[in-house]
Amino acid sequence: MGNKNKFSDFRVTARIDQVGIGDRIARIRSRSIKKEAKLQGLKMILNMIDLTTLEGADTTGKVQQLCNKAKFLHASNPELPTVAAVCVYPNFVSQAKKELEKTRIKVASVATAFPAGQSSMEVKIKDTKLAVDGGADEVDMVISRGRFHQGEYSYVYDEIAAVKEACGKARLKVILETGELGSLDKVRRASDIAIYAGADFIKTSTGKIKPAATLPVTCVMLEAIRDYFYETGSMVGMKPAGGISNAKLALQYLMLVKETLGNGWLSNEWFRYGASSLANDVLMQIEKQRTGIYQSKDYFSKD
């Protein structure tokens, strides 16, 4: 089960001190990211965004617009990198795949009875297959939070491992839905389970629950990734999702990644933002850096 063979006892995962995490984050937030470093950071961020639409009201029209936005972020500055991926429900995967043909933009699909994950393992595997068969490059699954709270860590582990198997070549992002876990200790435990069960990425949130991504939660998850790297030499990716809507905050996340995991993680192979409105704010900041003039939202396309 799972592609990683080292199993730990998830009842005794690493301890977390919340106040200490807060101190660390305060220090990250006090980093001053200006000028060249800012521009470089903003471009990296653009290239790390999973442009997302996950609504009951999603239509083929909406998905088409989203893919266009992904391809042509800002017409007046074609030099800019594209986003990393678009993220949609499984039933839109094949459409998105088609829209993004001949680009390097990946298609990610949520699966496994997203967002609540309250279904049988069988349904979840089928859901995953639906996405993969549609051509999804990446699958964003949710863990069974209920089972997790019940202390059934092996169930949660096995489920992730089974979904990973169903993914085939697609990379698996495991959503912990940290807003439902209740403490940083549990975030750490869920991270460890996901990582050891075979996650390629661990991801904070569905975007449907508040709080979604926060810097402290991300810090704990990055530390879990680091400990796994120390243990095995293998890298695992990280994706904070939800609630990151401005460039300044996104830069702080990037700084947190840099200082926790080093430069090896500073690419969209290992770090993503799950966000819908972040891209435009980043674009505005890039324009401000380029022109020296403060920007208006009216000059940036909303899709």
């Binding site: 919340q18 106040v19 403490s183 709080p211 402290p216």
Partner: peptide, 13 residues
């Protein structure tokens, strides 16, 4: 000693 800040009112962590 630190005091964890998770309140019953659900202000979150």
């Amino acid at each position: 000693h630190p005091i964890e800040i998770i309140s019953g009112s659900g202000s979150g962590y």
